[in-house]
């Protein structure tokens, strides 16, 4: 079921991308930076998909806990990928903090990729006397990637705040 859903989502995204590029064909001929911007933004949104959605789930559960609403471990496990039988006897809060830790690796990878792109753009920008064409495109890619990076940062900092409050750290 999940595999079918993922395939459908990927196909829809590809169709959306193709439609965007067909619609912007005329504009991208004279202004190809727009295509680079959109492509970079979409690629980084795809990379940040797990981070954004799972942090959103974590924020939702933790705000329920903070408001005093009862939640069950089964609800949390149902939203979570992985091995549900590992968590027998765990409290919802411990599952949530474990969940938050498992997606840390994606966060570091995501930020590292953005930092790499930023570094490449800065190198292209400042090593040559005359600004080469690729520097403009790399800069545009950085600008497009800034938007998913902002969302990831915002969701992650909110989730961290709620988790620290719930754990009374």
């Amino acid at each position: 079921m999940l595999a079918i859903f993922t395939i459908v989502v990927v196909v829809l995204l590809v169709v959306l991308l193709a439609l965007v590029f067909l619609n912007f064909t005329f504009l991208t001929v004279t202004f190809p930076e727009l295509a680079v911007f959109l492509a970079s933004m979409l690629i980084f949104f795809l990379l940040s998909r797990r981070l954004i959605f799972e942090n959103a789930f974590i924020i939702g559960f933790l705000s329920k806990i903070a408001n005093g609403e009862p939640i069950e471990a089964k609800q949390v496990i149902g939203k979570m990928r992985g091995h549900p039988d590992v968590f027998s006897g765990w409290t919802p809060l411990s599952i949530l903090s474990y969940w938050k830790n498992t997606i840390d690796v994606y966060r570091y990878t995501f930020y590292s990729l953005f930092a790499l792109l930023l570094l490449l753009a800065l190198i292209a920008r400042f090593t040559a006397l005359q600004t080469p064409l690729i520097a403009v495109f790399l800069e545009t890619a950085v600008m497009g990637a800034l938007i998913p990076v902002y969302f990831v940062w915002a969701y992650d900092s909110l989730a961290s705040y709620y988790l620290n409050n719930a754990l009374e750290l």
């Binding site: 800069e139 600008m143 800034l146 938007i147 902002y150 940062w153 900092s157 909110l158």
Partner: peptide, 20 residues
């Protein structure tokens, strides 16, 4: 944190929009 997110979001919108 919410106000910080708002300010940073405005800044990033300003930066990307003015860059384009």
């Amino acid at each position: 944190i919410l106000s910080m997110i708002t300010v940073v979001g405005l800044l990033i919108g300003y930066i990307t929009g003015s860059f384009i």
